[in-house]
Amino acid sequence: MELKVKQVKRVDGVKEAFYIPATFGGLRLTVKHFFRNLLGSKDVVTINYPEEKRPISMRWRGRHRLTRKNDGFLKCVACYMCETVCPSKCIHIEAGEHPDLSIEKYPFRFDIDELRCVFCGLCVEACPKEAIRMDTGVVAMAYSSRKTFDFTRDLLRDEYDPKQHESPKYADEDLPRPDSSETALPNSQGIPAA
């Protein structure tokens, strides 16, 4: 295939050799911007991040959350679909038997190592119950220890929109919970978190 090459013609005349006209041409532009911004920041496109946030798309994939049914139970049925499809093997589920016999299983543990996660969104697509979503809009996760990135079920569930649910009350509050000391998963290297 013939490549189309655009040839830029260099002007090499007396005007260019003296630099001065070109300098003034450049100065005109920068001085214009300087004074426009000096008198009221008109052109500045910077978003002052922690105070202002850039609007993110509806399809933007952020930190996971586990959705709940109307009665407050997790929608998750511990089917292991997301754990199976996850390319980075960052989801770890342990199914538990639900006291309510109409519900087959519920996730006794549902841990996501957000450091391993590649935010591909396959878990969301794989889920048959729309139990896991990545619509929290958490853009940046920055913590000082690796352990903090191991999100347990309760942490994932607690990521709800506070505007819609005023006081979170979980119907499965009485259910047996994993011991808090066990919540941390062994991480990817198999080293137990401190």
Binding site: T30, H33, F34, N37, D43, V44, V45, T46
Partner: peptide, 8 residues
């Protein structure tokens, strides 16, 4: 320089 380059 920030003003020249439309930064803060």
């Amino acid at each position: 320089s920030a003003m020249i380059q439309d930064r803060v």
